[in-house]
Nucleic acid binder design. Structure first.
Lengths: 354, 354
DNA sequence: ACAATGCTTGCAAACACTTTCGAAATATTT
DNA sequence: AAATATTTCGAAAGTGTTTGCAAGCATTGT
């Protein structure tokens, strides 16, 4: 195991000796001067890394002022991300932490130069990084891990992996609760409009939905399960497809509120009514659910809490604490509003098959 | 006029000589060590101020890394602020600026210790401050002005004052356009549901509304003008009041989209329909307008542009540039959707009551 | 009362880095 | 090939910080 050269903390001259150059040259490398040959620069940088050298200025920046944390939000500014942001800012205010917010499209995030990014975070004394519904490659995560920058992901798209911490909600339980609510109202033909197939949270919701059906002896129909994306457009398209079926569903469980909104629009467009002709359940519990007509029954995620939890986790990790678990799930809650009702065609003998 | 002692930029020894102490002592004062007598500390600090000394680290912090700008958003996370935030983050990414976002309730902002706040901003190397729909006292603004921290306010609540720059929209023109649109559809009885009486932007919208009426020879009725706040709740209450009038308006111009949403709900609650029974125009042009049914005709503010403009202004001011004007207004645009139509009883001369 | 002890305070000197400037090596032009 | 320009690096000279010590002062013990 590579150890620091000696007990004495490394100093510029130490690095210079190891790299076989003079102290000023090391200084130039650290400060990014351009009058250093590439080969020399590399040698110095290796020595720098080997000794774990840290300039006094870096040490000072690290210990002075309020802690700073980076937050990267998926470029699309949705109500969903706004809620999470609110939670984070809320907690940040009480903990005297500054939050540096950046908006990055997933594609941009992917081809970002993570080495440089991580380096810059170290130099600016950032304590950690919170990502919202984003995914990073293993190399990217390593860049941060190598520099001891904790990374916490909210609602990760990929399954929990080693090296980062994630915060989510009980998606499976939420999906099951939504489905059982519809079943208890008497629905049998329940469809699911999920998010991206790759999204872990969407898959969990789907499985919760399937579990809910099976638990009540209802077999799932493949034509009732559509996966696409978390968007209003997908809600429109999905509803169109489902309602055109020979035997359309009497209830739709949408993977997120925006999708539900799309469904609502398509349903209205056809002159049908919610919840009379179709029951509709959303997911997320964004303020949106209060603004639609009828107000949307939805599985609420504690988005603000999730933001708070993520920040708390980052700060703890930054202080070297170990967390009990690298993934935590906060409880969802089914909020019943006005978009769900018993199915219209309940002409089957009153005996609901429960 | 107090001038720098000489052409040579002040150095630690200069300060020490002026204060009559040694260089290490000055260093201790700067770094807040405690082994300096209070009297000595005061003398050194005076010399420091007199010479305007700045340590190399401060200079470095000021010039190194991406610029950092503070952004304070009114605590309530609305679609409105989300749009502005998006615009700011967007531009920040292209300019390599880090945005430190804080959420502060207006009350908290008011009793914040501005001296300390400003000082901390200087120490953390913040380039400037952007406020969204907030107001600051003159003393607070002075704290920042004294430290050369530019402050830009988006949609300021108070009228433009000396010492800060503001970004807004053509509220008057927008109010006039909305009103004239309704008049051109044949409406005569048009009500206005404004925001807080103190809000400059709301007053401008009101005057635009009045100008629109007068320009077409329609006299304004006091009972048709209600001012309250920018909220859905006020929309509900205001609509209730207006619709209970002996001669209710045939169109309502709401001061913001959220208010319009409240109106919509109250109108529906009474079994009336928009736009058949009542035309409705909102203000802001948030995504909300696309989500309602019917989609809301609204005076769109270029919120993202406003965010961008604010950041651009801060960065310019931070570089010592002079702006052409301390207040800029971006153009609003009336976006006609489905919530406005000719009044139902347009042609009936007498029986105008329903 | 006076010495002993301990605490505060500020400086000289040693340190840790940065900057400047020029010498040597290398590349480019004439 | 010579002259000239460019690159690269380190010695020397800043600039600011830390250490250790000595002088001054107060408190305590005899």
């Amino acid at each position: 195991m590579r150890e620091a050269r000696s007990k004495t903390k490394p100093v510029l001259a130490t690095v210079a000796a190891l790299a076989g150059v003079s102290a000023p040259t090391v200084s130039k490398v650290i400060n990014g001067r351009d009058d250093v040959a590439e080969s020399t620069r590399a040698r110095v940088q290796a020595a720098l890394a080997e000794l774990g050298y840290e300039s006094p200025m870096q040490r000072r920046a690290r210990s002075t002022g309020p802690a700073m944390v980076d937050l990267v939000i998926d470029g699309s500014a949705t109500q969903y991300s706004m809620e999470i942001l609110t939670g984070i800012l809320d907690y940040a205010a009480t903990e005297d932490v500054d939050v540096v917010v950046g908006s990055v499209t997933p594609a941009k995030l992917h081809r970002a130069n993570h080495e440089e990014w991580a380096q810059r975070m170290v130099e600016s004394g950032r304590k950690g990084l919170i990502l919202v519904t984003s995914e990073m490659t293993t190399q990217q995560l390593d860049s941060f891990a190598n520099r001891n920058i904790p990374v916490v992901v909210i609602d990760p798209l990929n399954p929990p992996r080693h090296g980062y911490t994630s915060v989510g909600a009980t998606n499976w339980a939420g999906g099951k609760a939504a489905t059982e609510h519809l079943i208890s109202l008497g629905h049998q033909r329940i469809a699911f409009l999920g998010g991206p197939r790759a999204a872990e949270c969407s898959v969990a919701r789907l499985h919760g939905y399937l579990a809910g059906l099976m638990g009540h002896g209802i077999s799932s129909r493949p034509e009732y399960v559509l996966v696409g994306e978390f968007s209003k457009a997908f809600g429109l398209a999905g509803a169109r497809e489902l309602l055109d079926l020979a035997e359309p569903p009497t209830a739709i469980f949408a993977g997120c509120d925006a999708t539900a909104l799309g469904v609502l629009e398509e349903v209205r467009h056809r002159g049908l009514r919610v919840p009379d002709d179709l029951s509709l359940v959303g997911f997320d519990g964004t303020p949106l659910t209060e603004q639609t007509l009828p107000r949307l029954t939805s599985v609420a995620q504690p988005l603000q809490e999730m933001g708070r939890a993520a920040l708390r986790a980052v700060l703890r990790l930054a202080q070297g604490e170990m967390l009990d678990s690298s993934h935590m799930e906060l409880a969802t809650e089914l909020v019943i509003r006005d978009s769900t009702a018993p199915p219209r065609t309940n002409h089957v003998p009153a005996g609901s098959d429960l």
